[in-house]
């Protein structure tokens, strides 16, 4: 019962933030549209690059077809988009800790971490989300199985992307400004998600199935699309939930070390 009311509260908070974020961005209408379309065009150039590469290499690159690579791209792009539409503020955690702006969130009677995550959005992320959907529709058509796995993958992917950022930014409580670390880690995550996983070996391969779980963003969903297996599905779900719990626990432990600060700031 407690969990249920908590979840309902958090959901309401997210909805309210979502609307508020959107209206905040729409204050600047021209910039909104430019950013959304700009991001879609930016992504499209990468397809062109892959199309050229397959033209040279033949049907397979590292065991992946052009269609497979496009699936990785679609999922990664939409998951990235969803994460940034809903939880863009995750990137500000280090900054909030260092400037003491975290105080504002701690002074409100709602759970701190969801409160932080929901409080910001990225406009261009809409471009990423839509781009993935369009790409999938063009390359994979309208197969129900593909789309169900895609939707699930986008949702879990958004959660995993966000959690990786939470973990990295939480380091700020322990070692000081971890913003650089977090952005590096996040770039690794994206890069690993959009290339065939067979090209990674050794330590990197272990990493993408554990602490930097890029494999769970796009590779495992692709495996399910090509060869559905209930066991793989279960591992995928369990991993996402486990990772979520881990990142929250790590954050709340770090929060105990919070020292606050007194910089003069406005809430943007």
């Amino acid at each position: 019962m407690f969990m249920y009311t908590e979840a309902k509260k958090i959901l309401r908070l997210f909805t309210r933030y979502f609307k508020l974020n959107l209206s905040s961005q729409m204050e600047y209408r021209a910039s909104f549209l430019v950013q959304v379309f700009g991001m879609a065009i930016n992504n499209a150039t990468f397809i062109f690059f892959w199309w050229l590469a397959f033209g040279v290499a033949g049907e397979y690159i590292a065991g992946y077809t052009f269609k497979d690579i496009m699936f990785l791209w679609a999922v990664t792009s939409s998951a990235f988009g969803l994460a940034h539409i809903l939880f863009y503020n995750v990137h500000r955690i280090s900054n909030l800790i260092i400037t003491g702006e975290l105080d504002t969130f701690l002074l409100q009677p709602v759970p701190v971490l969801p409160n932080i995550l929901g409080a910001g959005t990225s406009v261009s992320a809409w471009g990423d989300l839509v781009y993935g959907v369009v790409l999938l529709a063009i390359v994979w058509g309208l197969s129900a199985k593909v789309w169900i796995i895609f939707v699930l993958a986008v949702m879990l992917g958004a959660v995993i992307f966000t959690c990786v950022n939470i973990l990295a930014h939480t380091l700020t409580f322990y070692i000081g400004n971890a913003e650089m670390i977090a952005s590096t880690v996040f770039e690794f995550m994206i890069s690993f998600s959009i290339y065939p996983d067979k090209i990674f070996s050794g330590i990197v391969r272990i990493l993408i199935y554990s602490l930097l779980p890029a494999a769970f963003i796009s590779h495992i969903p692709l495996r399910l699309v090509k060869d559905f297996n209930i066991g793989t599905l279960a591992i995928w779900l369990a991993f996402a939930i486990g990772f979520l719990v881990l990142s929250f626990v790590f954050f709340y432990r770090g929060l105990r070390k919070y020292e606050s600060g007194n910089l003069i700031v406005t809430r943007m």
């Binding site: 209206s23 905040s24 204050e27 003491g100 702006e101 910089l263 406005t266 809430r267 943007m268």
Partner: peptide, 9 residues
């Protein structure tokens, strides 16, 4: 030194 209000809204 800290605001509860959203800057752009």
């Amino acid at each position: 030194q800290k605001s509860q209000l959203w800057f752009h809204l």
